[in-house]
Every structure is written in structure tokens, then in C-alpha cells.
Write a protein that binds this DNA or RNA. Sequence first.
DNA 1: TCGCCGCCATC
DNA 2: GATGGCG
DNA 3: GCGA
Length: 587
Amino acid sequence: MCIYYYGADLNIATQTTRMRMFKLAQYGARVAPKYDPESVTHIIVDKIVSRHIFLEKHNLRKLKDVPGHIPILTWDWVTDKGKGQFSKYAAFRRRNAVDSMPYDIDTNISSKAQRTAKGKKRASPRPPSSNSSDEEVSSIPQFTSSGRAKSKPNGPGRGDKAGASDEKGANQSEVSPRTEEDAGIGSNKDPLAEFYELARSERDAERYRYRDDETDDENEHPGSRAVTGSGRISRQSKFICDGIKKSYANCPNQDVIDKLTALKRIHENGFAKDDRFKVYNYNKCLGQLHSYPTRIHSREEAMLLNGVGTETAKKIMEIIETGDLRRLHYERTGDIKIVETFRGIYGVGGKTAYKWYVNGCRTLDDLRNRKGGVKLSTVQQIGLKYYNDINSRMPRSEAATIFDKIKAIALKIDPHLFIEIMGSYRRGKADCGDIDILITRPTDDGKTHAGVLCKLLRELRIAGIITEDLCLPDSWSDLELVYRGLCRKDSSSRRRRIDFLTVPYESRGAALLYYTGDDIFNRSMRMKANKMGYSLNQKGLFAGVVRDPHDRTRKLNQGTNIASSSERQIFEILGVPWQEPHERIRG
DNA sequence: TCGCCGCCATC
DNA sequence: GATGGCG
DNA sequence: GCGA
């Protein structure tokens, strides 16, 4: 089917409209950018749009100007498809009685039926057969500037967002500010859903870019190991380089994805002027492209994707129409993999990697030889030395073994310690990228965990578990410390990343929350907290935070800590149903 | 026009 | 202050 | 570069 959806001008399309068009595409329909009687097979009209408006906007004089074989339906036809006839979902009653009866999708009734229906007027606004609660077209009054008359009680989670009309200033009442549909495709009742949607669209893309805890389906990628010194460098574990995962192999817009990814990498790796937020945005729309089920046909269709605006839409159309993106040819693209390899070194990001590249380094060995006189910080030296170790994951059992050893040693130092392993391990993952350990201590006996970390690390070094330090706290006496380093199970094991976090006992809930992640989950929670006027960080949930209007992230006051000792309490205040650690994964 | 998580360590 | 990294 |  080729469906033309009319809700509003696409440039100001509401979430609902965008979502619907997206859904149509998901169902396999082709979404037409404009009404063209030649190609369009169905028209879907938002029910708040009156016949009058519809006609006017399409330069039509009467409904009969729309060919009789093209039914004009409401959205409900889509969601309730198969159960009903066209007539039941006709967008405009007048046409309903006259034209659209015959074109039932299931029965394919011919025009004979038309005559039976013709002239038959219903006294009641809804046909007796209607079983749909709120979608009867004929009960929707004409849309006028006086606004949308109330047509139904606002059921929870139901109701269309007004605003799909062109008369955008018109005082359409907001029926229900947020429908489930606004939150995304196939959304659920989870109040975090909408924030997931936001956080995910930003990082989902990075599901593509980054390998992280959740992308287990890719664990034994053949190219997973970095190969140093060769031309064909690394697909280190942190990145999924050029390889497209199997599940993505049949993306209908794969060529677009490839070209845009190439462009993104140019920005990302310093070959072009650094544009952090362009990269951010490319990630966002690449994630959407991955899940988009059908080939994109038009600029308008492209613009439906979250993160695709005028510029990206242009690029997408250029790729679709010419199979190429000219921009790529006059950007320097050849050596991106090298820069990406460098970025895989712990402590190295885009800036540094590009600088080294400019200095003439091309392989990890060049760095080892300090070719071009490049300098490496101590952390970077460790990152380089254990490049392969750090960039690979360990089985869950290995993390468990290491943690058990550490816990035993810690409890020998102070048996009252609260010591927990967090991160992907706590979320129940089968393999872990690193080990995250939280340490605190109840204070009811008047003592604290101050000084414990220092002692513990000393013991762990002696035991040969901790091998290198990456980042040490500057003061060891605080209750709140962070340590990063490398460890190993025994002398024949690979090195693994390990982090220690100590916090005051009261903040253990917030700390657990933070350190357990995953990252998308954290961002979702923080985003929701922000929208509710709170601020959430690893120390707690804060109310009454006032931010400097000029300096975005700066807080003028730090607010009041209203919850920190229990994860559950934070969930509760934010109105998020409790989720066990293993449930805290995207979406 | 402004924000795009919020924080910390290192250099 | 710039850069990188953590969940 | 997008989106509010």
C-alpha cells in the first residue's frame, strides 16, 4: 500500500503524527510524501482534521475529487485493521456514505454494495456495530477555529495529541498530554519509557558504534582482537568498526547507513573540525535508521526519523538517488581505522588519537617507538601495553573469582564492611568488561570505612591481584573515593579493568543505582529526574536545585538530598516501578 | 537560541 | 581548561 | 546537526 497520511505539515508534525508514519512504514506500507492520486492507494487523516481543512490543504473542492478507489480513513483503521470495513473508519462521513463502502479491504466488495449504502443516513453518530470505544469518526465535530469540541472522556493513556492540524495556533485542547504512542513504537506502560526513548535514541546508535555490556550477540566476532602493526588494524572490543552485524545485514537503507557512518567517523576522529554534537546527532539518527524497516523514498519520509533534519535528509536523499555522497570524496577518509585504533587505548580520545596520526604514527608499534616524538601519559602507556587485555571481556566466573578473593581480604581488614560487586556483573551478564566494586560501612557502631581502601589496595597488590593503577584518589581519608586500575585472577591470567568506589553509608542506594547502570538506564533516570525538577547523581536524588542560567551544568545551590540510601526510594519518588538490576537494560 | 547526563581524574 | 572515562 |  502507498499511504498518504495527513495530520499536519511535516515540518511541524507532532510526535503522534511522526510516530504514526513511522508505524505505517513498519507495517510495510510505503509512506507517500504528498498526496498524489496516481500512486496513493489509501489516505489516512488525523481525525481532528475536518473535511473542510483537508480539502483546502489539498486544493480540492469536494471529496469527490479524490478518486473513489482511494479510501480516506482514520488512523483507527490501521490499528484495528482486518476487523472492520472501510466504512467504519471513514474519515469523513459524507464520503463514507457515498463513496467508500465498496472498498473493503478484506472482502473486496465491488461497487454494487455502494448502492445499498448510498443515501442511507444514520441517525446515530455511530454505527451500531461499532465496538471501538472512541474512534467513531462521525462523532468528531467539524474542526473550526473555535476549537475541537470534546468528543470523548479522556481515558487514561488514550486520546490524540492535538496539534496535527495546520491551524497550529488554534486552540485545540490538549486532550491527554502524552499518549503511550508518543513514547515510541510498541511502548509499554513503563513511565521511564519516554525517557528511554530519548536516551536510547542518543545512545542506541552507539549500540552500533560501541560494543557494550548488552551486545552479547557479537562476542566472538572474528576480528575482535586487535592486530598491531598490520595494515588491517583492529576491531578492538570497544568498537564495532566497519563490520555490520548480521542482524543489520538486511537493513533496507544499509547504503545510507554506511555513508552516514563514514561521515560521522570523519567528524568523530578529528579529520574534520571537531563537532561533538554532530557526532551525537549522527549517532541518534543512525540508530533510527537501523530500526527503520523499509526503504526510504522521500525527503519527507526521511525527516520522520528522530535525528534527521533538513541537512541529514538532504544527504540521505543524495545517497538514495545517486548511490553516493559526494561529500565523502573530498573529505579525508582513508585512515579512519588508524585513528580508531588509537582511540581504543585507555586514556586516548579523538583529539589525542588524531594528533598522533598527524605526527605520523600509523600503528600501535609506531606509538611504542614514539615515532614522531609523540608523548604518552602514564595511563596511556599502560593502556597501550595492555591494549588487547583491556579491550576484551572476561567470563562472569572470572569476575566472581576475583571478587571473592577481594571480598575475603576486605572483610579481614574490617568484617563490618558492606562490599558489593556492581556493573554488568550485578545486572547478571554472562561476561563483564570490568569489575566494579562498591565499598561502604554501617556507622551504627561509630566507625566508618575511612582509610579502608588504602589498606585494601595494599593487600591486593601484595596478593598480586592489583597490578597497575590507572587513577588514584588524591586523598585517602575521605569516605568518598574512586579508584581505577588493572587486576588479574592469577599470574597466568589476562589483566582486567577494576574500579573501586567508596561512599558514605547513607548514599549507598544512589551509588548502587549509579554503579549498576546500565548507562542508558542511568541517563533515563537522570533525564526523568530533571524533568521533574530534581537532579540525580551518584550521591542522591536532589530537590530544589537551581542552575545557573548562563552556565548550564553549574548549580547555584546544590539542593536538598531527598533520597540516597535506598534504590527503591529513588525509584519511588521518580514514579518508576521497581526494577531488579538484571532488568535495568535499555527499553 | 540553547541544550544535548553528571561527575571525576589527569595533564 | 581541555580531554578522557565511568555508570 | 537536531529539536524544543
